[in-house]
Design a protein around this nucleic acid. Structure first.
Lengths: 138, 138
DNA sequence: TCCTACGATGGACTTTGTCTAAGTAAAGTG
DNA sequence: CACTTTACTTAGACAAAGTCCATCGTAGGA
């Protein structure tokens, strides 16, 4: 975490209270918060932080590659701080719970050259959908 | 196409001009329109069709399994009429162009049992991202 | 300590989508 | 063919998610 702040500082980031709080909120594994959720948690620590700042900071973290934007949900974007270990997502179709998962093999390799149509393919996003044990029991 | 209308009729659909137009607009390969684009094209043929009807009809087509909702874009949902042949999507990160692609193997099989955490996994959505030849040239 | 450019703020605005009450018409019935 | 039922459509209000902008504040260097 503090290494994240160090990295950001190294990139010329001005280290404000707001940015620190956003970074802290995003710390941890299996964290997939929406911008509004990040804002809600940030407000607990820094009541006057604005929505615009949260959006700005999240956008900056994404373009620096420190945080991933994931679209598991068809509504709000979610922000995943686990950007440095490649992984995919498993989503419960009922309750929306999200788990990080690690499929075997590299999904990028599954796209043959003949199916690339001249694109330079650099990234792949995989979302598995199903029903989690808790929803299945209920 | 007309077989789609037949199928819908068979399911007890009341066949209105509006629904017919929406179905016609969605006909074809590599069609990935947003709801608003569908509406815009529908209006050309049936000027008084409302946005609400387009949304309703698209939602019905999706729950009947005749059309897929895809979230390649981080903004609006896109509707893909090619629901009966499994495929994935390749998206240009610059211009947003979308191609249907057919990876080798079944992506669902790449998720080992140990990575399923008790979920009943039923579906997988794969989005490849890259730069299309036209954007690369520009 | 002071300055200044970068960042934060709140509110207006946009986009995408949902909901509702009232009107309209598809398709079955006689 | 006219009638009736009720599913469907409509316009517009509403909501959620996100962007933009003018203004103010402050981090961090001189």
């Amino acid at each position: 975490m503090s290494d994240l702040l160090e990295r950001l500082r190294g990139r010329g980031w001005r280290l404000t209270a707001q940015r620190r709080v956003v970074a802290e909120v995003l710390d941890g594994d299996h964290v997939h918060l929406t911008a509004d959720e990040v804002h809600a948690r940030a407000v607990e620590r820094l009541p006057e932080i604005s929505r615009a700042t949260v959006y700005n900071t999240l956008g900056e973290l994404v373009s620096l590659g420190e945080v991933l934007e994931v679209a598991t949900d068809r509504r709000a974007k979610r922000y995943d701080p686990n950007a440095h270990r490649p992984h995919q997502h498993l989503v419960c179709a009922r309750c929306g719970a999200i788990r990080d998962v690690h499929p075997s093999g590299n999904p990028l390799a599954d796209l043959p050259e003949t199916e690339r149509f001249g694109f330079t393919v650099s990234d792949v996003e995989v979302t598995y959908r199903g029903v989690c044990p808790r929803c299945a029991a209920a």
